[in-house]
Design a protein around this nucleic acid. Structure first.
Lengths: 120, 120
DNA sequence: ATCAGATGCAACTCCAGAGTTGCACATCGG
DNA sequence: CCGATGTGCAACTCTGGAGTTGCATCTGAT
């Protein structure tokens, strides 16, 4: 385990940074609900300009969370679940790792306490 | 579903924001590896000042990712897996939701294509 | 009592990124 | 061809957060 190919750490980083912004999460919600949508259409449903939406979509694209496809003169974006899934698994394994270490520490602490009790 | 108590969205937000910073992730790594550590000790293993570490720990504490415990004159921090686990589950269900919607959209698109083929 | 180590508080600098505006460039419809 | 719509590019402002420094405060040890 802990072997998920080169650049895995950077991928997780970009996904976390992307998800940290509430506007970007809202964009992902809209994309998940509507399928393929253009930046202009998305901007109509948000309190920010089209350019701001475009920048956010660029960040989401760099993180692998959305896909771009040009259709005629417009660019349609769609949600891409793979990266989110990978990050969710990374997070779950990290939490499991913490649990394991905490159990270890607790065990050691109890052993030390027992030794202390015996010594006096 | 989608009913995880009041403030669930804010909790997820604070966890994502906390995890978005590389220094804070490094702090979590150190805490997971060493158990209970003080801010001063953590700062010795990082390229930033103790005050910076304290601020990061405050953010992690607010997100529920670490716990504080005063022991004499020092304050020891420890990792707390629950919040990370909850966020991992939230993320996994979100990814599953996207998958479901994408499957739906694909089905509709294929049905439309079939209708198009029949009509001509 | 006193010194040293640890934490808390406050004010400050600095910069990445969120958002904007303006305009140039492509493309579709008539 | 021409107007309308959609996109791309660039420069700009501005706020929040990351980091620092200085000092005050508290506690443990000799």
């Amino acid at each position: 385990m802990t072997e998920e190919g080169p650049g895995a750490a950077e991928a997780v980083d970009s996904v976390l940074v992307a998800l940290a912004d509430p506007t970007r999460r809202q964009l992902l919600d809209l994309l998940a609900a509507r399928g393929e949508v253009t930046a202009t259409t998305l901007a109509e449903h948000l309190p920010v300009s089209r350019q701001a939406v475009v920048k956010h979509l660029a960040a989401l694209d760099a993180a692998g969370l959305v896909s771009r496809s040009k259709v005629g003169r417009e660019v349609r974006y769609a949600v891409r679940p793979a990266a989110l899934n990978a990050t969710a698994r990374w997070m779950a394994s990290l939490a499991a790792d913490w649990d394991r270490r905490l159990a270890n520490i607790k065990r050691i602490a109890e052993a030390a306490e027992a030794a202390e009790r015996d010594s006096r």
